[in-house]
Simulated assay, not measured.
Amino acid sequence: MYIELDNLLSGCTTADSWYDDGCIIAGDILTEFKTKDWEELLSIVLTKSLDWQKKLAYCLDSSCNSYELTILLLLLNTEDQELFEICIDTLRSFDILELKRIVIDNPLILKRIDEMLIKASSPVRKILEDFLLKIS
């Protein structure tokens, strides 16, 4: 299943095509993942292109499992603002006490969110504020 997901995320698609169909297909593939697939994905996620990582982060809430959480937390270490925003947006769908603890114990995440709030557009501001509300 990992190879199928990798091929989908590596493919050249328009933004419309990805958000209309690709992310739904990726979500369906992720629901079929076994432990081996998750471990393989976890081992390579940081070696993939930024576009690939953004696509993955966008669809990583299919089961809100610990592998998805771990991958999103790894991707939060990016310098890319859009990827960071996507990860925060996706993390809002997680209802895990562990997420609260991890974020609260990692002041760099909170600091970056605070810095982004200063110049964020309305939609991004809403995402960031909702996330902060969820973990408080």
Rank of each mutant, 00 (worst) to 15 (best):
L108H: 15
Q81D: 04
D51V: 12
L50G: 13
T14P: 03
E40M: 08
R101I: 14
E82N: 11
N77S: 13
F84H: 09
A120H: 08
R125T: 07
Y67N: 12
I25K: 03
S49Q: 03
R101M: 14
E82G: 06
Y67H: 13
Y19D: 03
I113G: 01
K119R: 14
S43G: 01
L117P: 00
L73D: 03
N7G: 12
T35P: 09
E115R: 10
I3E: 15
D20Y: 15
K111L: 09
L132A: 01
I135A: 00
G27I: 00
I3Y: 15
P123C: 04
S63R: 03
K48G: 01
G27M: 02
L76H: 08
E115V: 12
A120V: 12
I44V: 11
R125D: 01
I96V: 13
T78Y: 04
V45H: 03
F131R: 00
T78M: 00
S17D: 09
K100G: 05
W52V: 02
F33L: 07
L128T: 00
L46Y: 07
L133W: 11
N77L: 09
D95P: 04
S93M: 02
F131W: 04
K126S: 12
Y2D: 03
F33G: 02
Y19N: 08
L8G: 01
P123H: 08
I118Q: 13
L73Y: 07
L76Y: 13
L46D: 11
L74I: 10
I127R: 12
L91Q: 08
C59E: 06
C23I: 04
T31K: 11
Y67V: 06
D95L: 02
L72D: 02
I88D: 06
S122Y: 09
R101V: 12
P107D: 05
P107L: 06
D21K: 14
L30E: 04
E98M: 10
E85H: 15
S49L: 00
E98A: 10
D95Y: 07
Y19G: 09
K100Q: 07
F84C: 04
T70M: 01
S62G: 11
E115F: 14
S43H: 03
K48A: 00
L46C: 08
D105A: 10
S10A: 07
S62R: 11
E68A: 07
D95R: 07
G22V: 10
C87D: 13
D20V: 06
E98S: 12
Y19R: 04
G22N: 12
K55I: 10
D21G: 15
G11A: 13
L74V: 08
Y19I: 06
D6Y: 13
L5P: 08
